[in-house]
Each structure stands twice: as C-alpha cells, then as structure tokens.
Design a protein around this nucleic acid. Structure first.
Lengths: 133, 133
DNA sequence: CTTGACCCTCCCCTGACTGGAACCTTCATA
DNA sequence: TATGAAGGTTCCAGTCAGGGGAGGGTCAAG
C-alpha cells in the first residue's frame, strides 16, 4: 500500500501520516523507488492513532497507549489511569468553556444589536462592568 | 509606570505585554533609558485585552473589539455579531469535548483497572470495538 | 562600589499539524 | 516516444499565543 491508500483507508491526511513517521509513531518500509510501503499492521496502528486522537489524547499519550497495547503484560490500571487523567483535563476544559459561554451569552443577550453605539459587551470588556444583572 | 507595574496591575505577564506591543495592540511610550513607559490609557487597554482573552476571543477578535470600542459611531450590532460568532465556536467546542467525554467516560467505567491486561479502552482504540453497551 | 531587582532585545520552543516549493516516479494516452 | 496528470519524495516555513532563557543595560539602596 502506498501512502494514498492508507490515507483514504485510515481517514488521515498523507501529511499527518508522514508526520507520524517523523516522530516515530509508525515505521513503514520503503519500496525500491523510495515510496513508503505500508502493511496491514501499519494501517492498524494508524487507525488506532486516529481513534485515540479523536478522543483528544495527546501524541505523547498515544505513544504510551500504543506501548501499552503492544505490552501483553500490561496492567489495565495503567491504561485506566491515563484515560482518567485525560478525562479530568477534558472536564476542566469543558468547565472553562462553559463559564466563558455563560458570561458571553449573558452579554450577548443584553446587547441590543442595533445601529446605536451603546453596547454592554464593550462596557463589560472596558471594565465599566455595567452588569445589568 | 514601568512594565512590572502594569503587569501586576493588569494581571498580564510582562512577556505578554511586550508581545502585545509587538503585534501592535498597544503602543506605550519610551523613557530616556529605553524602558516602556505606560500611562493610564495603556493600562486600560491591557485590562480590556485581558478580559477579552479571558472570554476566549482571539487576538484578532480583540483587535476588532478595541477598534469598535474606540469608534464612537459604531453599531452595537457589529459587536454583537462578533460575540455571537465566537459564542458559536465555543458551543461547538463544548459539544466536541462533551462527546469525547461521554465516550471516554464510558470506556473508563468499563475498565477494571486492575493488574490484568484486558482493557476495553485499548480494545476500543484498536478497533475491536468491544462495545459492552 | 557592589548587589539585587528591574528592564531591554533577540532567538528558539511549544502541539499537531498544514501549505507550498522543487523535484522524482508511474501510468495512460496521443 | 513524448507528454501530461496523478501520484510520490524531501525540506522549509507558518500557524496561535505566548514561554524560557541568554546576554546585557539601568536603577536604588546599603
């Protein structure tokens, strides 16, 4: 398989696949013409990476997860811990975004949105804090 | 005021303040010794920037918001539109994170987390998809 | 006069790619 | 056989919003 094939099969851009080779996540063979030559195992690893990335794991997390996956004598506790830590970060991000959302949403609601200049969004940002609570 | 003063008053790191000058968001004067010399208006702008960034606006959004703030003949509709677009992006991010969270949370729950190697998290990532629904 | 706390500029680093230039290989068609 | 398109290759630079640190100048106090 050439890179185009694995790209369409894995859903990952060719650029990304080359990048993953660069940073040592995959090690495809090379054909005589210099093209990367992927086997089923490479495709499998790429699919693994794609799913892990889609769950928001960092590249370093992915590296660890793949090492654990290949380690037959792993303890599932190690995997779970990694996932739990990641889950915690996601929860933190969601909370942060939710707070931004709530504040901003309130400001947007209170803004007339017409052709006059008066705007509670700008008032808030400027520190006048016209909290119309 | 020197940069240390505005840093502690605005809560922004000195590095960030220098960066904001670099990209033209503020234009503090200079003292004879080459030090940046901030006046109250600079501090006000920095506080504005700090609040806008805390609400997740991009630097370019901040630039636009400050321009609107200084424009006495603005229409609040322009501010509102910008804020609404940003709000939409925040909502998208929250939804994405929430989906990651839900999936990951389910996987974490279903993982024993002991010293045995069997792990539904890895199974899922590997594509075996042992969805224990 | 020295010490320590400031301040300056300049450059590289981050994460996870993405875009583009310049070039090579393969295959189908005229 | 030429040629053009569609693949592939490497390498360099850019993204976003700063952070870290080197190497050096300035200032106030003791």
């Amino acid at each position: 398989m050439n890179i185009g094939d694995v790209s369409s099969r894995s859903g990952l851009p060719a650029k990304t696949i080359r990048y993953y080779e660069d940073i040592g996540l995959i090690k495809p063979l090379r054909s005589a013409n210099g093209y990367r030559s992927f086997v089923a195992a490479d495709l499998h690893r790429l699919a693994f990476l794609g799913r892990a990335r889609a769950l928001g794991f960092t590249i370093e997390d992915c590296r660890t997860l793949m090492a654990l996956y290949r380690d037959e004598s792993r303890a599932s506790a190690d995997v779970k811990l990694l996932a739990q830590e990641h889950l915690g970060k996601i929860e933190t991000k969601i909370r942060d975004l939710q707070m931004m959302h709530d504040t901003l949403s309130e400001l947007v609601t209170s803004c007339a949105g017409d052709d006059r200049p008066d705007c509670p969004i700008l008032s808030d940002l400027s520190g006048l804090g016209s909290t119309i609570s």
